[in-house]
Design a protein around this nucleic acid. Structure first.
Lengths: 336, 336
DNA sequence: AATTGTAAGCGCTTACAATT
DNA sequence: AATTGTAAGCGCTTACAATT
């Protein structure tokens, strides 16, 4: 089944069939209708590979992430794919597994499939691999880690807004002894979040007790253990911010186990707003970083750049915002 | 950059370059080496579309799932992709979002990309769409829902083994009052799990109190609410099996909130063994359904069928097994 | 017999030509 | 001027022919 048979049935040339499929305006409605009927009758699906070869565009975008089993990514991938399909594009997904070596394989896969753009939502990227893509004028979109330039866009997350709101929320509730459980220092995004928190305290002129800075691993067990250490302090924090929701969920378990109540005895705020966060007990107050928004921006960045012939990339800002649920409350009256 | 330039640099014909790339044995090692050096020098990446068009095989497999944000799927997708890439294939992922209508779009995407096979890991499949694929002799692999036939394989999960082990584990601990929190009846896989539980009790001659059959939604909130209803019963179960781990996690929250201890007061067992399960407090005893295993089998089914020229499909069995952690213990001594 | 080359073919797109 | 058709071209693969 190919375009020739459609052409024969519709009594037109293959060019006209092609034009109809691609929505060209130089086909009379009647001809187009005849072609469409032929396509319908024959259940014809145009061969993407021939199209790609003929036109030079693959209608495929690459999406490089760290690890699909990290709850941050599925929603991002799903949204990206949804938008892409709406625009008649497909998505090639690649996991780096946090391993810069695997990045090499990812890029090679992208190159072989001649992607029309790559969204790099991870930080395991080396200079020379970026070069390999840039040389071929493939539009690129990074998350937080790039400076916009020809063909290269950057999604810039404004962590400060959300973290500011979180800290302000806590101070307005009377909290001063605020702790932060960071993510693994090896993760760029975790380092950025931590830095944003420290800056925020400085701006708000709140003294940061070094004992209150803990480190987790962005998983529940890391959050649990870090929280245990905080609870063992002679002077405990009355509120805890965490680098992601999984950490907060682990911390909540530690708090309950000690027989303490959230938020009566201690307040806790997560980061990301994963789906699970509204289903914890109590529902988690958290800083939302919309994965849909990231996906939308990344796609738009690539799509725009591609359409305009690899013009110069841009900065795409994304806000973070505080979602107040029930894990935060007034600072406990009694000094503990 | 194309195969011609490589051929020129290596001083061979394009056919020889092609043969080298595809690992044909009719190229002398010296020639092959020369070609490889030329490829290296020119940083040549063969055009997948031209390859697909020339050879008639796309090296692409379709993977249809319900929803990437359902924690059951990411691990499956990741494993499937990993295996595929190891075999030099790519993966086209499509979400149905539990909507049979979107299945239509998924299938059309698969058809346009001329996939070499489709793994359908969801039950939103209609007869006529299967037909559309079957007519084109595209190998198919289903999860639980198909009868093997020409070109169609089925991954058959043996739920009974794991659920039997779970029930046996509980009875050996003295439990008789065993409850089950099912998934949504609309989900085929949830219905199968529930049925397996009922059969298992029958086989073990344990009376099933109809009040002990609850229904959740495969999310934590559903598990939480179902568990609340169970705790409100005059005669409570001493042990609870759930249709998936998220349900169990929700149920655990409900139990803790009532001031009850797991497993001292009540035992709980999940299903799936998602990553989170080892990080709950206490770690969750659960029935493992290996997503890696499913991915491996599905890929193998498609790969085998394709290689053997769409021969008849087969049944691929997958075991479930009980992972004992710390959420199960002896039946409480006192009658409550 | 083993290795290499020639050239047609895969199924589209699209510049240009032809037709109305 | 608007619509349609012709045919070359995209970059591979592979049957068959040619060469060693």
């Amino acid at each position: 089944m190919n375009i020739k048979e459609v052409a024969k049935l519709a009594k037109v040339s293959t060019a006209t069939v092609s034009r109809t499929i691609n929505g060209s305006d130089k086909v009379t409605p009647e001809t187009a209708e005849r072609v469409r009927r032929a396509i319908e009758t024959l259940k014809f699906y145009p061969n993407t590979y021939a199209r790609a070869l003929g036109s030079g565009r693959s209608s495929l975008y690459g999406l490089i992430i760290s690890d699909l089993t990290n709850p941050f990514f599925p929603e991002l991938v799903k949204s990206f794919e949804e938008i892409a399909v709406q625009h008649g594009q497909e998505v090639l997904i690649a996991n780096t597994n946090y391993d810069p070596h695997r990045m090499e394989v990812c890029v090679s896969r992208m190159l072989q499939r001649k992607v029309d753009g790559v969204a790099i939502m991870t930080s395991e990227m080396t200079e020379h691999l970026v070069e390999e893509l840039a040389v071929r004028r493939i539009p690129l979109a990074f998350l937080d880690t790039a400076i916009p330039q020809k063909g290269v866009s950057n999604i810039l997350v404004d962590y400060a807004v959300g973290i500011d709101a979180a800290v302000e929320h806590l101070t307005s509730l009377g909290h001063r002894a605020i702790s932060f459980i960071a993510g693994p220092v090896s993760l760029t995004s975790a380092r950025i979040r931590k830095r944003a928190f420290i800056h925020c305290l400085e701006r708000n002129r709140i003294k940061l007790d070094p004992h209150f800075m803990e480190e987790g691993n962005h998983r529940t067990d890391g959050g649990y253990e870090a929280m245990c250490r905080l609870l063992d302090l002679k002077v405990r924090p009355t509120a805890v911010l965490t680098s992601n929701d999984m950490t907060a969920i682990g911390a909540m378990v530690a708090i309950s186990e000690r027989g303490l109540e959230i938020p009566k005895d201690i307040s806790i705020i997560g980061f990301d707003d994963i789906e699970l966060s509204s289903f914890t007990k109590p529902p988690l107050t958290t800083v939302r970083l919309s994965r849909q928004e990231i996906a939308k921006m990344a796609f738009r960045a690539l799509y725009n750049t591609y359409q305009s012939g690899a013009a110069k990339g841009a900065q795409y800002p994304i806000e973070t915002s505080l979602i107040v649920r029930q894990s935060t409350g007034p600072k406990p009256a009694t000094k503990r």
